[in-house]
Design a protein around this nucleic acid. Structure first.
Length: 458
RNA sequence: GGCGCGAUAGCAAAGCGGUUAUGCACCGGAUUGCAAAUCCGUGUAGGUGGGUUCGACUCCCGCUCGCGCCUCCA
């Protein structure tokens, strides 16, 4: 039985799908005006893992991850770049796809873009207006009336009055209450707009997710995910909009992944301490990054540093080394085998990937001891469910230079290995060792076995 | 100020009221021409003060420290 920690109830709960045998899941994706950073990588990988495990559990999954392609930041960036909004967003959607693919993230079933759902948003706003929850302010903006929605704050555990305590005096917003949020922004000079019953304008941030999720998944669906920082106000507002418009429960299970940190501080755009996926992939194999993300629990904070990635790289090498020692027969998982059982229990316990990884390492030891192709298949099969160990071991072991080591071509390495073998044949161990330590100095490790000499990157 | 989360060995990171987490690093042994890899083995934990219990890293309370949200942010 799968258990999921539900942010809404703040406890682990048995997962019971609305429709037996199938799951509908929505995850807040990217706002496309810049490169994806490590925080985005975490959302992408974590919910890819969730989606994979749901499918592996025999459920039929409909996974939606949206793209926000219209908002203030996008408008500003396009202006600064002197390009059109669609040029900007198309470009970064392409780059995001590349990053996601590198990290082994499977394509969601739907990737709706906000700008393609304007009619649905307008429909939703009309419903909210009809239900007395939306009003047009003197500024022309259409706002959501937070105080008229009972239960506002149930996701984030905030009460409206507590929120008021920290508020700053804000004039000219036209809001009845400072906590009200915008559903539809009145068009301003030089900004893109769409016609609406309330005049030309563009959508507020939160309404797109309510519109896209109900259009693709229905008014009431199973799982909604995203980064912890979206819990308030974004997800809180989504609930208010969706439940306020449809008058029915919105989402059963809310999942929020923890932050990525640098030096124990949240990595964020505003702090400027973020690393893009691209930057990191210049130094590390994408699978190392994926493994780094998955070896921590999705709700825990994840501290980034080169040392931690180096550590992850060494650990992943151990798994690939085991696969190399005993080539797998297949990648089919035998679910009666003890490691598979442990793996499955770990995953069913709120996607405990660190524990699932521990099962993988125990299995690797077993493979090394037994040299069993069957167990090796188990290893590859189970790891595959996390999107790991899909490659040829040699490709991984020889393809990822450690930080600070120089590149050397495979041909050059092979040549030196041949020279060393010749030296060994004539028992010139001084020369043989000289060659080996020379290679080690540039990050190449030689391993002799009965068949000959293999090399890998340290 | 309001609300919430966390504190595990050198580093990273899980489960668990009593029995080896796991990985990296380290140490001893096997193996090797020497190594590497691998195997075997040892060691290093649970912020602090109380409480509950036959027994607590694990449950409860206080304290200290760290972090997050309350504003765009994955």
């Amino acid at each position: 039985m799968l258990k999921i920690y539900n942010s809404l109830t703040r406890e682990k709960q048995d997962f019971v799908p609305i429709t037996p045998g199938s799951v509908r899941m929505y995850v807040c994706g990217m706002t496309v005006y810049d490169y994806c950073h490590l925080g985005h990588a975490r959302v992408l990988v974590v919910f890819d893992m969730v989606q994979r495990w749901l499918r592996a559990s025999g459920l039929q999954v409909c996974y939606v991850r949206n793209i926000t392609d219209i908002d203030d930041k996008i408008i500003r960036r396009a202006l600064a770049n002197k390009e059109s909004i669609s040029e900007l967003t198309d470009r970064f959607i392409g780059l995001m796809d590349e990053d996601a693919a590198a990290l082994g993230v499977e394509k969601p079933d739907h990737e709706p873009r906000a700008t393609q759902y304007i009619p649905q948003m307008l429909g939703l706003i009309k419903l909210l207006e009809k239900n007395g929850l939306a009003y047009q302010a003197t500024t022309g903006d259409v706002n959501f009336s937070v105080r008229k929605f009972p239960g506002y704050g149930k996701l984030s555990g905030k009460s409206i009055d507590d929120l008021r305590a920290g508020e700053r005096v804000d004039v000219d917003t036209g809001k009845d209450d400072p906590l009200d949020f915008v559903l539809w922004k009145q068009a301003r000079q030089g900004e893109p707009f769409w016609p609406s019953p309330w005049g030309n304008g563009r959508p507020g941030w939160h309404i797109e997710c309510s519109a896209m999720s109900s259009d693709l998944l229905g008014k009431h669906f199973d799982i909604h995910g995203g980064g912890q920082d979206l819990q308030f106000p974004h997800h809180e507002n989504e609930i208010a909009q969706s439940e306020g418009a449809h008058r029915c429960p919105f989402v059963n299970y809310w999942m929020h992944n923890g932050f990525v940190r640098v030096d124990d501080e949240k990595m964020s755009k505003s702090l400027g301490n973020f690393f893009t996926i691209r930057e990191i992939l210049k130094q590390y194999d994408p699978e190392v990054l994926r493994f780094f993300i998955l070896r921590a629990h999705y709700r825990s904070p994840l501290n980034y540093s080169d040392a931690h990635l180096d550590d992850a790289r060494q650990a992943l090498s151990r798994l690939y080394t085991a696969l190399k020692a005993a080539p797998p027969a297949a990648a089919e998982v035998d679910w009666h085998e003890p490691h598979a059982i442990r793996f499955s229990q770990a995953m069913n316990d709120d996607f405990n990937t660190p524990d699932a990884c521990a099962a993988l390492f125990d299995l690797a030891s077993e493979v090394n001891r037994s040299r069993s192709a069957g167990l090796s298949s188990q290893l590859r099969g189970l790891a595959g469910l996390l999107g790991l160990l899909k490659r040829d071991p040699q490709g991984f072991l020889q393809g990822t230079p450690a930080l600070g080591t120089e590149e050397m071509s495979a041909e050059a390495i092979e040549m030196l290995i041949a020279n060393r073998l010749a030296a060994k044949k004539r028992k010139d161990y001084v020369e043989a060792d000289r060659i080996r330590s020379g290679l080690l100095a540039v990050g190449i490790v030689l391993e002799d076995d009965a068949q000959g000499t293999n090399w890998r990157r340290a």
